[in-house]
Design a protein around this nucleic acid. Structure first.
Lengths: 195, 195
DNA sequence: GTCTATACGAGGATAGAC
DNA sequence: GTCTATCCTCGTATAGAC
């Protein structure tokens, strides 16, 4: 894709985008080809030309989500901001979509885990693992700079942060101003612990 | 119900119990009357005698879940254990069912929030509110006993703990030994912060 | 690539017999 | 209270025309 060139989004990508938002708000079992069809403006049957089955569609969805999140994390890491600043930026990523009733795709699919086909389950696992690895690197920087200490280990501290973020999204869902609720939970905790 | 008397569980309660476990593992949209029917040993149609609709069934489900959890919390509170001990016991509640792939009913339904009928949404909100209130009381005790301090407020600290617990359940879902994962996340955090 | 038409099963729900 | 039988809708998926 060339800059400054208006490129029509390909249908396959349109489908992925719409499906992603649907899953992020309703979950795996509660979204349908009919929903996608309506929002993309093609017929149900046409979706099958691009993705042979629902499972394949969701598989691609998670794969692309992983890539996108990895890119965003990369951008934060290369910003060369201080470790605590990077943590805050990372947390901000999970505020995205909250106002529209969407949570992290993989948080939603973790809830739906029991009904997912194995390949998708594997993708979810990889997402959480990658996230933990990225976070661990940031936490490590902070330790080395004597900004904070991690107990009992960097790895567990990273898991704890991820749990807090995913949980805060769930809690935020049930209240009017989700974004405010999320901030109220997440940022005080991060500030108290890491700055 | 009289002690030491074997009482046949009534069908309505059997249905509720089976449905609760189904929702806790698959979510609202992915469990069906057929599933319940199979496990309870009656026909699909018979379920409608006890609960006129799926929505009514799930409504009753959450109501009963709230009551059960309130009872368990009450028992912890009246145990007169130290505040930090009460926190640990509270956290243990959320470890229940994890090995069987079940998470907190309201965590699951928070994920499914967008597709729930309003009355059920209200029940979920009440559950989280009650939980927060209970937790706040315990945290308050700890503050008064100079065991710890809460920043920026007891209320937000309570929300943070709930978020961590719900999030830890989600994360734990995707790994082999869910219970161990849950412990690994939750107890170090609680210990570091509140003991 | 997208359409229409259709297959086929599963979902929740109702009627009426026992 | 539970059953059988049935309804109707919606789900994913396929075949074949354009």
């Amino acid at each position: 894709m060339v800059d400054n060139e208006i490129v029509e989004k390909k249908t396959a990508q349109k489908i992925l985008d719409v499906a992603r938002d649907l899953v992020r708000s309703r979950g795996y079992s509660a979204f349908s080809y009919a929903d996608i069809s309506e929002q993309v403006g093609i017929r149900k049957a046409s979706i099958h030309y691009h993705f042979s089955s629902k499972d394949e569609l969701v598989g691609k969805l998670v794969l692309q989500y992983r890539e996108t999140m990895a890119l965003k994390c990369d951008r934060i890491a290369r910003s060369a901001a201080s470790p605590d600043r990077q943590l805050m930026e990372f947390a901000r990523l999970y505020q995205d979509g909250l106002e529209e009733g969407q949570i992290c795709l993989c948080a939603m699919l973790a809830a739906d885990f029991a009904v997912l086909p194995e390949p998708v389950q594997d993708e979810i696992r990889i997402f959480f693992q990658e996230t933990e690895t990225w976070l661990a690197a940031v936490l490590q920087q902070g330790c080395e700079a004597k900004k904070w200490q991690c107990h009992p280990s960097i790895e567990q501290e990273a898991k704890g942060i991820i749990a807090m973020l995913q949980g805060a999204q769930l809690l935020a869902r049930s209240v009017e101003d989700s974004s405010a609720m999320f901030e109220q939970i997440v940022f005080p905790l991060l500030s108290a612990r890491f700055s």
